[in-house]
Design a protein around this nucleic acid. Structure first.
Lengths: 181, 181
DNA sequence: CGAGGATGGAACACTAGTGTTCCGTATCGG
DNA sequence: CCGATACGGAACACTAGTGTTCCATCCTCG
């Protein structure tokens, strides 16, 4: 999963040796590349669903719920590169298995209702934001000399700020306050 | 650039026809794939530098400057996928041509000094954040039925919130306030 | 110990992409 | 109008990755 997430076009031989099995064995379980990718997509979907389950999206205010979800999702590590990278793009039927998508959209709408999420941000955008920031944090932790712990702290901090509705009496030096449309 | 940004492993034949030239002609200007990628990287670097130049990073407070930069960078369109995707990862010497990197780091440090950027966010993280959000906005505008204008509005809104230091007297329901470390 | 299953190395044919050469054609300037 | 230049199609050899088959080895359980 790690290798495929990072380099979706990695040759099967590399994947096999990364998994510490022979290419033949890999082929025995997944006859062709497509079935391997299917299996991995499925596994990713399961893990993501489980993570969201653990996060308890319906508890507390919506923004807190999303931050909890982010913690859980960040812990999935390599899975992040998978959902973000081209593997997902090539699977139109996916787009996060629908139910994940639905769950996230629902939280965001709740956030709009309970005023914990900036209403200027559409549910789908929040979702894009979530995945992209998690992915960024993951690669940040990998590339830069930084612990996953620090990366998590910063992504949570940033995400919280991004989602939070603008405080009415905060230093309104324009720029953001007047979001067109 | 568009095609290479989206699918870094696209065959040269596709690239050629996407550029509406014959594969032979493509080969005449760029003898092998590597030289093509080099040229495109260079072009991307130039455009990004120009965009940052236009943004006037040294004017106004640092956060505003970064938001201006985001507008300019977002207008680069396909270039975003390039810097974000694996093309950059495979070019260690790049990492945004150094001077772009340096300029951005400098703005963030200024933002820490003038208290317009949350000091909990390291310069490198802000940079990751910037690119990933711009990339997310670009694909959002492409995939979802949304105008680039709307996407831009949302990314600016989110980025502003993410960078802005937490207002000391804002509804501090924890979560973000106490950023560990 | 011995049979059965899992493993993985070796070799194979096959395909897609690459880089190259050659040559006919179109286009532009004098 | 003609020559120079750019274009691009066709064909080629070459490589890397794929999917398959075959077989030797190892491990485990009875």
């Amino acid at each position: 999963m790690q290798l495929l997430g990072r380099r979706p076009d990695a040759p099967l031989s590399e994947i096999a040796s990364a998994a510490e099995v022979g290419r033949t064995t890999l082929h025995r379980y997944y006859p062709d590349r497509a079935s391997l990718v299917d299996a991995i997509s499925g596994e990713a979907a399961v893990r993501i669903s489980a993570a969201l389950q653990r996060a308890g999206l319906t508890e507390g205010d919506a923004r807190e719920a999303l931050l909890r979800a982010s913690r859980e999702l960040f812990d999935l590590g390599p899975v992040l590169s998978l959902v973000f990278g081209p593997l997902l793009s090539d699977r139109p039927e996916w787009r996060d298995t629908g139910d994940v998508e639905a769950a996230l959209v629902e939280v965001v709408q709740r956030g709009h209702a309970d005023d914990s999420i900036n209403p200027a941000l559409t549910p789908l955008w929040v979702q894009s934001l979530l995945w992209s920031m998690l992915y960024a944090a993951d690669s940040y932790a990998r590339d830069v000399a930084a612990s996953r712990h620090q990366a998590l702290a910063m992504v949570l901090c940033s995400l919280d700020g991004a989602l939070r509705p603008p405080t009415r009496l905060s230093s309104s030096n324009g720029t953001n306050a007047k979001v067109q449309q």
